[in-house]
Every structure is written in structure tokens, then in C-alpha cells.
Write a protein that binds this DNA or RNA. Structure first.
Length: 197
DNA sequence: CCCTGATTCGC
DNA sequence: GCGAATCAGG
């Protein structure tokens, strides 16, 4: 791969957004973080903190690039409710390098659930969640990596919001505990709706 | 050990 | 110009 115009543009964009070199490298593909860093330096856009004379592209989350826009909250799944097929084989599961507020919290353990179906297993899962949360590393958004559990804990809008942060299962965005609750196969759903087939 | 960016230097 | 290897650090 070479530094085409587009790729350089993305590089600038990502770098400006605060992505790490390795993250950018993964995003772009075909390059290593070293390549990215090298290019960044050659472009003279090192210091991210201070904007140089030229105005930098500071699009919050430009919907320009489909790939770039693919920066969805990895925890966008509805935990304990439906399996997330995305984790199966995803080329890109970029870290949220931007303020994520659209994170569907796994449910505040203290809050009652949907009145109607407190499934025994859901109940169990929920109880388990609070247990897991107790041992969470409580990582900040910026501290997340591909090897840390990205299970959100708390309300993103609130103060003590954090992520689980325990070692993530290889290839999945969550730790083994949260994988267990997040990727529950359609189970104990004995309602065999005839309509289904 | 995981990760970060910075620098060097042969290509 | 490029980027792997290396360095220096968290």
C-alpha cells in the first residue's frame, strides 16, 4: 500500500481525532503503526494538542467516510438480550476514539427491568452482571484497547461511567463474563412461534 | 506484558 | 519518501 491522497486524508483525520498510531494503522489497513508514525512526522503534523497555523479538520464525526463512520460503539449491542453477530468476524472493530453517548447501557442493575418478562435466566444474568461489575477494572474510555472488555457500566451521561476493562476474550469485545451474557444464543425461548417457519 | 509516540537509517 | 527496528517511556 502506498500513501494515496485518500489515505493521507484519513490519516490526518484520524490523527486529528486523537486516534493512536496503531489504531489508525488498523483502520487504514496495509500499514503498520510505524508507517503511520513515520508518515505523521513527515507530514509535520506531530503535536496533536496544539493546532498549528493552518486550521485542522476537526469534524467531530464526519459521515464522509463509510469506514471512518464505522466507528460504532463496540458495545452497541443489546447485552443479555440479543446476540451480536458483528463480533463473529469483523474486519474492523475500532475503538471509540470519540465521545460515545449512544451507548445502550446494559441496564442499571438497580433499575427494574422490562415489566413483563423477568426470565429466570435473565434474572440470573443480571445478578451475574453486578457481580462482574464489582471486579471490573473500571477503565476510562481512552484506556480501552482491543484486549480490554468494552462492556459499559453505568450511565454515559453520569459521572461514574466506565467500562469493564477486564481482559477481553480473543476476538471479542468483552471479557469472558460479559461475552457470556452478551452472546447468549437464542435459548430458553420455548415460544416456538409456528409463524416463525 | 500491554501500550504510546520518536528517532534512526538503509532502502 | 518510506517504514522496520529501535529507543524511550507509561
Amino acid at each position: 500500500m502506498s500513501w494515496t491522497d485518500e489515505r493521507v486524508e484519513k490519516l490526518k483525520e484520524f490523527w486529528a481525532e486523537g486516534m493512536s498510531a496503531s489504531q489508525i494503522a488498523k483502520q487504514l489497513g496495509g500499514v503498520t503503526r510505524n508507517a503511520v508514525i513515520g508518515k505523521v512526522h513527515r507530514l509535520g503534523l506531530s503535536h496533536r494538542g496544539s493546532n498549528d497555523g493552518a486550521r485542522t479538520a476537526e469534524e467531530p464525526a464526519a459521515a464522509a467516510e463509510p469506514e471512518a463512520a464505522a466507528v460504532e460503539a463496540p458495545a452497541a449491542e443489546a447485552p443479555a438480550a440479543q446476540p451480536a453477530p458483528e463480533a463473529a468476524a469483523e474486519p474492523a472493530a475500532p475503538e471509540p476514539a470519540e465521545p460515545v453517548r449512544a451507548v445502550p447501557v446494559p441496564r442499571d442493575p438497580t433499575q427494574p427491568r422490562s415489566p413483563g418478562l423477568p426470565t429466570p435466566e435473565e434474572e440470573a444474568a443480571r445478578v451475574t452482571l453486578v457481580e462482574i461489575e464489582k471486579m471490573a477494572r473500571k477503565l476510562d474510555l481512552l484506556e480501552l484497547t482491543e484486549r480490554t472488555c468494552k462492556w459499559p457500566i453505568g450511565d454515559p451521561a453520569e459521572d461514574g461511567f466506565h467500562f469493564c476493562g477486564l481482559p477481553a476474550v480473543a476476538g471479542k469485545p468483552y471479557c469472558k463474563h460479559h461475552v457470556a451474557v452478551a452472546f447468549q444464543p437464542m435459548s430458553t425461548r420455548r415460544d416456538r412461534s409456528r409463524a416463525g417457519r
